[in-house]
Amino acid sequence: MNIFRFAGDMTHLISILVLLLKIYATKSCAGISLKTQELYALVFVTRYLDLFTDFISVYNSVMKVVFILTSSAIVWCMRRHRIVKRSYDQALDTFRHLFLVLGCLVLALIVHDKFTFQEVFWAFSIYLEAVAILPQLVLLQRSGNVDNLTGQYVFFLGAYRAFYILNWIYRYLTEQHFRLWISCISGLVQTALYADFFYYYYISWKNNSKLQLPS
């Protein structure tokens, strides 16, 4: 494992912890898209079907379990927690996320490494992760104001993407048979979706002002 991959995993983990902390500390999930969180939980569950069949390292297995548990915990809080669920912006979070799921499933049935249950779901999870942020970005766009923690959450998610791309470049240069088409193309799509958000995040940081997205 190289330093970029590790930095990517850590920023990914931090983004999830920032979100959990925000929900726990403020007892509010205002500004957070439940649909994006449900998609991420689905991404982790379908990608880590190999948890019991292919052992890679203790680090990998532990992180997989942590990602499944933390993403499920966020969804649970937003749907079921007595106080937290009251602050959910249901009226603003109207993205048709089922279409994303169906589209990714069809794509995974067409483009995959091998036509097996695990491989198809692995490809599905990669495609779904690429677009899972869309409901969140639409929600931020609609609400206009972005509170600091939500901004940081998306910032760390974006940082995770950037580090993973560096990781793939590094692996491509150092490993002889590194194949990455499905991951890399999906990863580039995913990172491109953040570019717009990052631009406004940078502007607000430079001006030391509150993050505002144009409507």
Partner: peptide
């Protein structure tokens, strides 16, 4: 198990 692809990533 997957030394040549990105399936050893998270």
């Amino acid at each position: 198990a997957f030394p040549s692809s990105s399936k050893d990533e998270l």
